[in-house]
Design a binder for these strands. Structure first.
Length: 643
DNA sequence: CTAGGGTTAG
């Protein structure tokens, strides 16, 4: 009879085992475990165990393990590591612990390799205490042992432990390798730490390793230094797809869609094919630039990966943020799987585009489906309420968010509520709420209150809020202008002048207004009073004349309120969005929606202008400002004039 | 036995 132990190579064991099973497994195994009258063959027990391990037959492997335990037998380390892999894959925590127990029984001393496997298992099960316990008791620790622990801590909230371990490892005389460095970089909690690690990496000559490189690029970008990352990227020779994705993703996450898309073109020229990660970043780039047509082209490539949740979420967000809710709806409906991000994206998308009711309905549908809302989902539904003036609903969600969804109200939630109450004219309540906050209100929170004061012309409270904003964010140009205008309006000229002086001294300048439009794969940018295109100005003049005949009166009445937008500028008539809209009407085929993106909030006059123009020209016009989306059609706007 | 890239708000 063939003995299993003849087959030293695990693959051969596996193949024979599979054949035996196919023909007559029962007879063979019974014959082997009960060889008539003779003593049990120890090698057979171990062989059987080995075979089950390679077959990934967990129940039988565990049975064989018990039998080995009874006879004080041990298999080789590689076999155990196969079994441990299997436990990891199946999430079999208890079985894994039994293996751990077994290999330390009766004074057996497992090899470092095997203990490393166990360490890795505990890390994969996220049982860091068990891993640490085992690690602390190891007699010999090699680079893998240390790295395993460093990886664990780098991915945990105890990042400083990862760095401490690195130091201990060096003191212990164990050289970190590329595995160690590519993980520990993530643990830098300060940019200076990152730079120190980078120096170590250069010194030991590991900077050229693609894993280390992509980690470096990624972490520099996470620290908001994509330019440094790009320098490194350009300096180095070879890259792989992940390195490309790191740099492209880095720029897209730092909202530099333009650079991200440029790099994507470079990547394609270098002969790489986009994968899911690339496409996700490219879509995010389109989203931040509001490039709907380019986004649609990317969509074609997304279809290849239509089961990829993250990618689909990015696609969904692209359509929402580009103002095409029809496309967003169909992506959402077709998604095979949806997670909390898919739902949140759609809810926020609906709210931003003016469909607050639909957003709330979808939120309720989400709850009905059993999906648990998170911090951002709740923010989305409050946002929907605040933009539709739904005070009652908003208050209700806010008050029950902790009990109903298990989400503690954070400063963003308070901000939404302050916005909601403030806009609805309940300034006292808004003020009360900001003082009741459990967390420290930040500049954004105070700005929400300030915005409400502006709308309802509460000068005293506005002054109070503006001072708070400036103490927290001394670079906020809009607030300076607003506050100085409040002073000017109350004839407090000295204070107004002082504030303007302060602004000058601090070198704070208002961001110039800019609008963009995408036509035929080209992006056209317009700035305030842009007179590089006289023909657009002429056409704009004609539109204004015709609108005036219909009763349009350019609105210059809001003097001090409109500081965030371009309203303080004299050339109200040539705001960038007006130029961009007119250009769109001139260049796009009849019936095609004019889509504009701008960097500042739309002003009251442009809002009226766009509404009337949409009716006169029979055109849909969409203007996306940094907060809201305005869909103009037939003389009305999706925001219901509430923004 | 150890390593790198992607999605919702601000």
């Amino acid at each position: 009879m063939k003995r299993m132990s003849r087959f030293k190579c695990p693959m051969a064991v596996l193949n024979v085992a599979l054949q035996l099973r196919r023909f007559d497994s029962v007879r063979v195994f019974e014959g082997r475990t009960r060889p008539c009258g003779s003593k049990i063959d120890h090698r057979d027990i171990v062989d059987e165990f080995t075979m089950y391990c390679y077959q990934k037959d967990l129940p039988n492997a565990m049975k064989a393990l018990e039998s080995m335990q009874k006879h004080k037998l041990w298999a080789n380390s590689i076999t155990y590591s196969e079994l441990i892999k299997c436990c990891i894959a199946r999430g079999a925590v208890e079985l894994g612990k039994r293996v751990h127990h077994h290999v330390f029984l009766d004074g057996y001393e497992p090899k470092t390799f095997l203990i490393n496997s166990l360490l890795n298992m505990y890390v994969k099960f996220n049982l860091l205490d068990d891993a640490e316990f085992l690690f602390d008791r190891m007699l010999v620790r090699n680079v893998v042992s240390w790295t395993t622990m460093i990886v664990a801590y780098s991915n945990s909230e105890y990042k400083c432990k990862a760095l401490r371990m690195l130091i201990m490892m060096l003191r212990d005389g164990v050289q970190p390798n590329m595995y160690t460095y590519s993980s520990v970089l993530r643990a830098s909690e300060e940019i200076s730490t990152l730079k120190q690690l980078h120096c170590c990496i250069i010194k030991v000559g590991l900077e050229l390793d693609v894993f280390v490189r992509s980690a470096l690029i990624d972490v520099y970008c996470k620290w908001g230094e994509p330019k440094s990352a790009l320098l490194m990227f350009d300096e180095m020779g070879t890259s792989d797809i992940v390195v490309w994705n790191s740099i492209i993703g880095g720029f897209s996450q730092n909202s530099d869609g333009e650079e991200a898309l440029d790099l994507f073109i470079r990547m394609k020229r270098s002969g790489f094919w986009a994968d899911q990660s690339t496409l996700t970043s490219v879509l995010r780039g389109c989203t931040s630039l509001a490039l709907l047509e380019l986004g649609r082209q990317v969509h074609v490539h997304v279809i290849k990966f239509d089961r990829d949740l993250v990618l689909n979420n990015a696609l969904l967000d692209m359509y929402c943020k580009c103002g095409s809710l029809k496309d967003a709806d169909s992506v959402f409906a077709r998604m095979v799987a949806k997670d909390v991000i898919s739902w949140s994206t759609m809810i926020i998308g609906l709210a931003q585009n003016g469909y607050s009711r639909k957003a709330i309905d979808l939120f309720e549908a989400m709850r009905g489906s059993g999906m648990k809302p998170n911090y951002i989902t709740v923010l989305g539904v409050l946002f929907a309420c605040s933009h539709a003036g739904l005070v009652k609903e908003g208050r209700c969600y806010f008050e029950s968010m902790k009990t109903d969804f298990g989400v503690d109200p954070g400063k963003e939630h308070y901000g939404c509520m302050i916005d909601l109450l403030g806009r609805a004219g309940k300034l006292d309540e808004a003020k009360k709420l900001i003082h009741e906050m459990k967390c420290e209100p930040d500049a954004v929170t105070w700005r929400a209150l300030l915005g409400a004061c502006r709308v309802h012309r509460d000068l005293d409270l506005a002054e109070y809020a503006a001072k708070k904003v400036l103490s927290l964010d001394p670079c906020d140009a809009g607030t300076y202008t607003l506050l100085s205008n409040i002073y000017a309006n109350s004839q407090r000229w000295d204070e107004a002048a002082k504030l303007r002086g302060l602004m000058r001294d601090r070198g704070i300048k208002k961001e110039p207004g800019c609008s963009w439009i995408e036509i035929d794969k080209q992006v056209h940018a317009f700035t305030l009073g842009d007179n590089a295109h006289p023909e657009i100005h002429q056409e704009l003049g004609r539109f204004v004349r015709r609108l005036k005949e219909e009763g349009y009166v350019p609105d210059t009445s809001f003097v001090y309120q409109d500081v965030e937008g371009e309203q303080m500028e004299n050339s109200l008539a040539y705001h960038s969005e007006k130029l961009a809209i007119v250009f769109g009407i001139m260049r796009l085929p009849k019936g095609k929606t004019v889509r504009i993106r701008k960097n500042l909030r739309i002003c009251g006059d442009c809002h009226v202008f766009a509404k009337l123009l949409s009716k006169m020209e029979g055109r849909s016009i969409i203007v996306r400002d940094p907060v809201r989306y305005h869909h103009f059609q037939d003389g009305a706007c999706s925001c219901g004039d509430y923004w």
